[in-house]
Design a protein around this nucleic acid. Structure first.
Length: 515
RNA sequence: GGGACUGUGGGGUAGCUUGGUCCAUCCUUCGGGGUUCGGGACUCCGAGACGCCAGUUCAAAUCUGGCCAGUCCCA
């Protein structure tokens, strides 16, 4: 569960409103108009000094969601944003299925009786579930919970599915909407009440196999993150911050500048914590009855938020080619004296790219070229191809990628050259993100040094909860936990715990301010 | 859970202190016309708002109360 709260800071200078004006009462001020289609924004707030304002403005400028739906925390996916989401999901599906997981889908409503079976779990979610208590005009005998996550929907059925060791492992996932009644300020993608949720649930024969599944999930996520060009750190959460009901939780966190971090997803090892209350057991080869060990792996549209937050810049959003709604936008440069040739060539370019499987968009609208350039840059399109009179005559197109690299593409080698440019762009994007990632961490040698941190801090920690909370108040954030992999910078061996000064079993831990 | 603040066209805003000159300002957006088109064009015409309910008053965007919605701070 993410904790902490970022305070949207003010734009400097101008007495402009720093947060979007709240809407009026639900249902009256809202207009069911079609989404703004050509929305642009002349200037974005500064990413470093007004991060949250910047983020909200980029999401709006890129037209990824329409947040004007009259229920807090429920956002409308626009056509453009939905494309990004589908591409993102395709990456998740590809990588999880490569590890032998299969898609299933369970119902959205969970009987209160099932929901209540695991004590820690219900304690963790009690305060943030939506209840369905009526069917038509009459009260339901057993109230239903709108799933905040699907353990309690799936596990009674897993108990029916699993009889023998031959039924194991059971590796299934679903991508469904889940609901959590967030009480804090909601933000597009990063804190919502209707969550577009990827959740894998597995049952393994024993703890070792479950641990292996966690490792496999970490490997799958590395490939997913590669497709998004997204650096991150896998961090084992401290006990007081693990998923309700879990044995342990490994979270995937990305730094967002300053001490800010965003949890992209998490992988949980449940041991027998759920299989016992839900009686998920199997007959082993030796005839004994055993409880399964379970794991889960959860991701959401937060990934999209992270992608916007990490890659976005002063010009707007930036998408890697794997998830870009449009990978290429083709812009004809028209004019009264140039005839139809540039338009014809541009049409041909877009059609050819589409035939070869690219997501290519032709922008032949009436706006001037400069306006189109700005718009598609804000929208994060990786590659722009311009075709004017000069290009039409030379059978070429001018290419400009979202990071500003310019070039020329010969039309007879169009598809190959576009592939090269996109690959080059993806590499450059990853390099830029990696550089920012590496610069996001620094070591803090004492509690006092944590105050006013402008980086995610690496601290020596003895593992005790008391010291953990001291560190948390020191940074006014959270102790994220201990890294599963190598730290991004090498701080040497950890010294004494910065909380108690103890040297016993002290490890490096990370502390930051989760969004 | 406690406290503070804020609601004006699709988005952002001016006006509110001191009620009237406001059938509400500006930017943007949207629809239409014309001239344009190699980095946010110009121009003409048109569309679009005072969160809801009540009260005070000759008169309410402006004052009062309630409600709703939202934001922030603290637990």
């Amino acid at each position: 569960m993410p904790r902490g709260e970022h305070n949207g800071s003010s734009r400097s200078g101008a007495p402009r409103r720093t947060t979007p004006r709240p809407r009026g009462a639900a249902g009256d001020a809202f207009r069911w108009g079609r989404p703004l289609s050509r929305r642009t924004m002349t200037d974005l707030p500064d990413k470093t000094t007004a991060f949250m304002d910047w983020y909200l403005a980029v999401v709006e400028a890129a037209n990824l969601t329409d947040k004007r739906y009259p229920v807090k925390g429920l956002n409308v996916w626009t056509a453009y944003g939905f494309r990004a989401r589908r591409n993102l999901d395709a990456v998740l599906v590809r990588e999880i299925e490569a590890t032998g997981s299969e898609a299933v889908e369970f119902p959205a409503l969970i009987p209160a009786t099932e929901f209540a079976k695991e004590k820690e779990h219900i304690k963790g979610f009690d305060a943030e579930v939506y209840w369905v208590t009526k069917g038509g005009l009459s009260d339901l005998d057993v109230p239903l919970v709108l799933r905040p996550t699907s353990e309690t929907a799936m596990y009674p059925v897993f108990a029916l599915w699993i009889r023998s060791h031959r039924d194991l492992p059971l590796n299934v996932y679903q991508i469904v909407n889940s609901f959590r009644y967030e009480t804090k300020t909601t933000r597009p993608f990063v804190r919502v009440r209707e969550i577009h949720f990827f959740e894998e649930h597995t049952c393994q024969a024993n703890e070792a196999h479950a641990t292996e599944r966690v490792r496999s999930n970490l490997g799958a996520f590395r490939k997913m993150a590669d497709a998004f060009a997204l650096p991150y750190l896998a961090i084992r959460r401290p006990d007081w911050d693990k998923f309700p009901g879990a044995f342990y939780t490994v979270a995937l966190d990305s730094p967002l500048g300053g001490a800010r971090t965003l949890q992209l997803g998490s992988i949980h090892h449940y041991r027998e914590n759920f299989s016992r209350p839900y009686a998920i057991q199997y007959e082993a080869a030796d005839g004994s009855q055993q409880f399964v060990h379970q794991t889960t792996f959860g991701l959401s549209e937060r990934l999209l938020g992270a992608i916007v937050a990490v890659h976005g810049d002063a010009k707007g959003a930036v998408f890697s080619s794997a998830i870009a709604p449009y990978q290429v936008v083709v812009i004809p440069i028209l004019g009264s004296d140039v005839g139809e040739a540039p338009l014809r060539v541009a049409e041909d370019v877009a059609a050819r790219l589409r035939r070869h499987g690219y997501r290519a968009h032709l922008d032949a609208g009436d706006d001037r070229p400069g306006a189109k350039f700005y718009r598609w840059e804000q929208a994060g399109v990786p590659l722009r191809l311009e075709v004017g009179r000069r290009e039409a005559e030379a059978r070429s197109a001018t290419s400009v990628d979202r990071l500003g690299t310019k070039g020329r593409v010969a039309l007879d080698r169009l598809e190959g050259e576009v592939a090269d440019r996109l690959a080059e762009f993806d590499r450059a994007l990853r390099a830029r993100a990696d550089a920012a990632f590496a610069a996001s961490f620094s070591v803090a040698r004492s509690l006092a040094e944590l105050a006013g941190s402008t980086r995610v801090r690496i601290v020596a920690w003895c593992g005790s909860e008391a010291c953990g909370h001291q560190i948390e108040s020191g940074i006014d954030g959270a102790l994220l936990g201990t890294p599963e992999d190598a730290l991004p910078i090498d701080p040497g061996a950890p010294g004494p715990c910065i909380g108690c000064g103890g040297t016993e079993s002290t490890r490096w831990a990370l502390a930051g301010q989760p969004l």
